[in-house]
Design a protein around this nucleic acid. Structure first.
Lengths: 173, 173
DNA sequence: CCAGTGATGTCACGCAACGACATCATCCTA
DNA sequence: TAGGATGATGTCGTTGCGTGACATCACTGG
């Protein structure tokens, strides 16, 4: 993060990262699959938290309600470190390769949520759609939260976004 | 496509592609930004077609209805070449880097649709949400269409998926 | 016939990423 | 306590992607 913020992602070599960490480039690649991956170390635990929340939602909950529970967990997970999220997001936004990686992490998240929904008995296409919709809400809400200058809560913004999506789809045909 | 299908994406070098095309590797890179991009040559025109359809939707159409018009255009654009889409999709699915590129193309599509909606007067977060939802529908429907063994129409599957999303969001809270 | 333009080739280079092997610390056990 | 297994790290060499700089060649307009 330090180096990526200082001089940008492309202008940073793996050798430099390794040097600052007191390691060899070869060792870097033993911990991270590639130069990008180092910025996404936490995404596995985020995903676990979301899936866990989805699974522990009440049985009576509808698919989208279970997804909403997962989104609450996401807010809890990220809610504290807004400054860190801001910095990280700035680095990612500035580089196309990093945006790609970010997107595939989101897609993995979506797939994991869809799996979780299927385990709850939701039929396959509904599960995918609900998961995709959930991730869309996450994306939009997170963007707003990071951009926002005020102090509004992430979970609150997520709720709003879900409501907006409901209103939008309800107004189609 | 030939080489990627024959021996897979990773096992194909740019020099080989260039050779089969009767060119130099250097020239390849003058036409395509990188080894992946060659599989996404058509995505710009797809995007244009969708945005055009969105813009020419009746003024009275709701945001999601305008998005639905764009999805119809997508179906028209892709509907004929199912065999080609299948092959291409198989190549992409088999490789993580290609999946990343596919995702960023989708994200660009989503951004372009959101822009188009804003030009129609839709407020910003609604535009993003509707566009994201539209792309989610596209993704799910396309996946079903490519996988599906039957002869069901892409546009038909898209309509179904939109209806399903409506039902899902309506059932939240 | 020449100057300008655009497409292509040639060459050299930086760097990401990986395989193979060496080294060293730790720790378990006979 | 010596010795062997294990795991983390370093070293070295290689491949291939991607780019900058420069040369070449075809084509076009004047």
């Amino acid at each position: 993060m330090e180096l990526y913020v200082e001089r940008g992602f492309e202008q940073t070599t793996v050798a430099e990262i390794a040097e600052r960490a007191g390691l060899t480039a070869r060792t870097f690649f033993r911990y991270f699959a590639d130069k990008r991956e180092v910025l996404f170390a936490g995404s596995a635990s985020l995903q676990e938290a979301l899936v866990a929340a989805l699974e522990s939602a009440p049985d009576a909950a509808s698919p989208m309600e279970a997804v909403a529970a997962a989104l609450d967990a996401a807010a809890a997970f990220l809610g504290e470190g807004r400054e860190f999220s801001r910095k990280r997001q700035a680095v990612i936004a500035a580089n196309a390769e990093l945006r790609e990686r970010e997107l595939i992490k989101m897609a993995q998240l979506s797939a994991a949520l869809a799996d979780g929904l299927r385990r709850r008995g939701v039929v396959s296409p509904d599960a995918s759609l609900a998961a995709e919709a959930g991730v869309a809400i996450f994306r939009v809400a997170f963007e707003r939260w990071v951009t926002d200058l005020g102090k509004r809560d992430l979970s609150q913004i997520m709720c709003e976004s879900l409501d907006q999506l409901k209103a939008l789809t309800a107004a189609a045909r």
